Computed example of a mutant assay.
Amino acid sequence: MAPLTAPFTLAHLSDPHLPPLPTPRLVELAGKRALGYVNWRRNRHKYQRREVLDALVADIKAQAPDHIAVTGDLVNLAMEAEFAPARAWLDSVGPPDRVTTIPGNHDAYVRATRHRFGESFAPYLAGDDGSTGFPAIRRRGPAALISLSSAVPTLPLMATGTLGREQLAALAGVLEQLAAEDVFRVLLVHHPLKSRAWQKRLTDSAALLALLKRHGVELVLQGHDHVHSTMWFEGPNGNIPAVGVPSASALAHGRYPAAAYNLFAIEKDNAGWRCEQVVRSLDHGLQVREIKRARLI
């Protein structure tokens, strides 16, 4: 591959939990949704704010990245009334050829509507071959974006994710294919590869890590935990960075930081790939500023 004249820039945000929450119908407030609604009314509405999300997206647009990745949890309780506003919001972020999204656990909150995310956001999920299954591959500039879905309905008080044998088997083939190509491989997954809490873990992370150790990628982008994080995992040619980011609509609260996004500058150099991370975060005045810059590769 010839050297690029300028780095390819990839923005990463996650967990917008699009506020405000629509008023639920009584029939929708059963089981897990009832607990989620109580949590929203008591706590989450105080710090998941639309003005925060709007400020973050405005700053992303000002940075003019080549592509934007959104790693799940666009909605909150997966009620029917949430999906149309979430799709309108995603359309405002950018067109499907410039934005890639994957589902999070809140997007598949209950079995009754677990299919709605795929229906509502199909153009933003589809691989280059037009398929909307997972894994999906999107090639953008020097990058190959590999989308996974860890979104499955779970019992109340649980927020685990699962890829499943079929998706993992397909991923093995995708990674083997891409390993032979000169592309910067970016894996998108909602649940972190190493969980901070048992009830929020990726249940088959060991199988995923084994695939990455064998075949490798250059970068993993993840969400779910609502915190800044950089984890390192073994790959065939060195350690792989897995980077998480706070909720895109959150005010700082407790141990959770304010909304932020990551901007990655990716380019080829003589030694291989170069990837620099810039973290841009909301301050107390709803202004977005750079708070960190680091070279990952």
Rank of each mutant, 00 (worst) to 15 (best):
L148P: 02
Y261D: 04
V70C: 09
F264E: 09
L168D: 00
L145T: 06
A259M: 00
Y124V: 03
L35R: 15
E181V: 10
S150L: 00
L187A: 05
L90A: 01
V174W: 01
L219V: 03
G31D: 12
H190P: 05
N237D: 14
R42E: 11
V189K: 03
A180N: 07
A55L: 13
Q199N: 15
A34M: 15
K61H: 15
S247H: 03
S249H: 07
V52L: 12
A2T: 08
K61V: 08
L10G: 03
L286P: 04
V99K: 01
A210R: 11
P7K: 02
Y261K: 03
R33Q: 15
L282Q: 14
L74H: 06
L77K: 02
M158I: 05
P236L: 02
V152M: 10
R98T: 06
K213V: 06
N262A: 09
D73K: 08
L26T: 15
Q177G: 12
V217M: 11
G104F: 04
G104V: 02
P95V: 02
P257H: 04
D91E: 15
L208W: 02
P65H: 09
K46F: 11
L212I: 02
D15V: 05
L208Y: 02
M79W: 06
A108W: 01
V189I: 14
G238D: 04
D204H: 02
H191S: 00
S150R: 07
T132M: 01
S92K: 05
L4D: 12
R111M: 11
V288D: 13
R116N: 10
V243S: 05
D225C: 06
H215I: 01
L35M: 13
R98P: 00
P7E: 09
R185P: 11
L175Y: 04
W89C: 06
F184R: 03
L148G: 00
S147N: 04
T113K: 05
N105D: 08
G223I: 08
L212F: 08
E290R: 15
L171C: 04
A197H: 14
A207M: 10
D54Y: 10
H190C: 08
I137F: 12
P19C: 09
G130K: 09
P85W: 05
L148R: 01
I102L: 09
D204Q: 07
L10Y: 01
